[in-house]
Amino acid sequence: MNDQAYNFAYLDEQTKRMIRRAILKGLAIPGYQVPFASREMPMPYGWGTGGVQVSAAVLTPEDRFKVIDQGADDTTNAVSIRSFFQRTAGVDATTDTAEASVIQTRHRIPEEALREDQILVYQVPIPEPLRFLEPRESETRKMHSLEEYGLMHVKLYEDIAKHGHIATSYAYPVKVEGRYVMDPSPIPKFDNPKLGNNAAVQLFGAGREQRIYALPPYTDVISLDFEDHPFEASKADHACDLCGSTHSYLDEVITDDKGGRMFVCSDTDYCEKRQAEGHTGRRSDATQLQEVGQ
């Protein structure tokens, strides 16, 4: 049901070529931010314009497309981007991680291990990891080109000085193939270990900032840390209240105004699959979050 008023996947072919060239360059230099001529998309900045343009450039008619927003397939943002490509590209959509060939994500990496025939597209608000320490773009580019990354550790130092431990819990900076320091987009640091040595192609698109960067399959990605304060992929110290998983990233959900709360997998597809397999958690009676809230 391709909407014929648009070119395939909304963008014109020249634009998609331009974006593909940026993607290829990004894959050739893992972690390096490639500038690209970001287009106006029919959605506001901050809603994934970068990710959408990258998805548009890599989608083929045969693809099965999945969109997650903080792990969930059913939020407004995920639903509208999914229907956008269903309309403009006519691709099949899915919520099943294993079935999808292209997954666009905002702020999570799926729990299920990805395969070589899959592409993960990240929506990136601010691609420059050095931005908050050094506001001048001319200077940060120079720092990248000269590998002057001492400043990145200053940020972590400040964390420890202030909180006694590295308190940065998302958008945790990584070093790619021992060369470029990269912002992994605001994924929780729990997901950082999945960035490295991943079988899938990982593409990062920042629409407002006009940057694309990439991690080819099986790239070496190290989270920055100190010898005496090593990186830790932390999560809430609970099991999922719905599927009982002890090794997935959890969202905390407030269930009433009397201090009631529960922890559930942020990856909805993962959680549902586990429940279907018969795994249970502390509150398995509450199969629907909406019901829990009431």
Binding site: G150, L151, H153, Y157, F226, E227, D228
Partner: peptide, 11 residues
């Protein structure tokens, strides 16, 4: 910062 810039990694 200057120490970290020359590679010190022990907080």
């Amino acid at each position: 910062e200057r120490l970290m810039a020359v590679g010190d990694r022990h907080y």
